[in-house]
Write a protein that binds this DNA or RNA. Structure first.
Length: 334
DNA sequence: AATGTCCGCAACCGCCTGGAT
DNA sequence: GATCCAGGCGGTTGCGGACAT
């Protein structure tokens, strides 16, 4: 697990730390603090370079560090923060008490990144399967719904034999061709770019150049809704009250992964809102249950990018990230 | 039981940033 | 403004345990 210990040409020890070295460093820092990492090892009686001492202290010896497995809640937070910040490991770690940047970075590379790679691979599988389904549909001369002006929605009967995919996949879900009533209040602490892309697309004036560095005020201007209001609660939450009238859907969204605020937006927009839904739910599941749209259907995209293609006039196409996919789920949509 | 392969994680490396001079 | 340097950061390495063959 640890690197072989050796002494370099300058007489500096490298590699795994011994218990004696840990004890010396801990005792020194707890007593005198770290006033100068370069000089510290000399005074602490360590044959290590300052950087090595700093790293050992920061990542292992510093009081308050959690030495337990990262929880599901922490993982969700890491994913959400990585969505917003990218590889800013120290900034992400700062939001996770007791975790270090190195720990978060290692966790990302060994767990989450790998999972995302599997997701991509699974996408290829579903694309191939969808192609087969499409071929089957065409061969059986199954007619599309009369409402599908762009010819995308499909008949249900040919999908009974779709192979169950237990892996994570990406999909696109067609929403019904009817306007959706807009109700409720959105509660989310921090807006991400995907939130803005959803909201902008829903308001016709789509422009996903707005990103998470913008404040909620931008949203009010963006929507140009005089009745929209913003309040900030005692916590960090921003409450954004949407106008009560229904809005027609239009536009196009591009976002890579749904986060919990996305779900709260979607659920609120559907008036049956329940923002207890979080990112551990699959996107398709949430849509199926919350939007309760019997005419929705599923097709797939070949890229990793999720596309929420809203129709030219009414209704739309939503492509959420979903964590599993089976016959029962398909039936919920069809 | 022996060997090979994979994986997690501690630690290293090199670059960047910002403060001091 | 230029230079130096400590601290900080992200990418990468490599050891050793776990698991597969």
């Amino acid at each position: 697990m640890v690197r072989h210990c050796f002494v370099d040409k300058n007489g500096m020890k490298k590699g795994a730390w011994s218990k004696e070295e840990d004890d010396k460093l801990r005792a020194y820092v707890l007593r005198y603090g770290y006033w100068n990492w370069r000089l510290l090892p000399k005074y602490a009686g360590l044959a290590r370079c300052g950087k090595s001492c700093r790293l050992r202290w920061m990542n292992y010896l510093k009081p308050g560090l959690k030495r337990v497995v990262i929880s599901k809640e922490e993982e969700d937070l890491i994913m959400e923060l990585h969505n917003q910040m990218g590889n800013k490991w120290s900034a992400i770690a700062a939001k996770l008490p007791g975790r270090t940047d190195n720990e978060v970075k290692n966790y990302w590379h060994s767990h989450i990144k790998k999972r995302n790679t599997q997701k991509t691979a699974a996408t290829k599988v579903i694309v191939e399967q969808t192609s087969e389904i499409q071929t089957l549909k065409e061969s059986e001369d199954l007619m599309l719904s009369p409402n599908t002006a762009n010819g995308i929605a499909c008949d249900t009967t040919s999908l009974d034999s779709v192979t169950v995919l237990q892996d994570t996949i990406w999909s696109e879900t067609f929403l019904p061709f009817e306007p959706l009533e807009l109700f409720g209040q959105l509660n989310f602490g921090e807006l991400s770019s995907s939130d803005f892309s959803i909201l902008s697309a829903l308001n016709w004036v789509g422009d996903d150049s707005v990103n998470s560095s913008h404040s909620a005020e931008v949203l009010a201007n963006f929507w140009a809704e005089p009745s929209a209001s913003i309040t900030t609660s005692s916590s960090n939450e921003t409450n954004f009250s949407l106008p009560s009238g229904p809005l027609e859907l239009s536009g196009e969204l591009n976002f890579s992964e749904l986060s919990s605020p996305d779900f709260s937006i979607l659920s609120a927009l559907n008036s049956v809102g329940d923002d207890s839904v979080n990112s551990s739910y699959s996107g398709a599941e949430v849509l199926a249950n919350f939007w309760a749209e019997p005419s929705a259907s599923i097709s797939t995209s070949s890229s990793n990018e999720t596309n929420f293609l809203l129709p030219v006039e009414k209704g739309g196409l939503f492509s959420p990230y979903i964590s599993y996919y089976d016959d029962s789920m398909i039936s919920m949509f069809l």
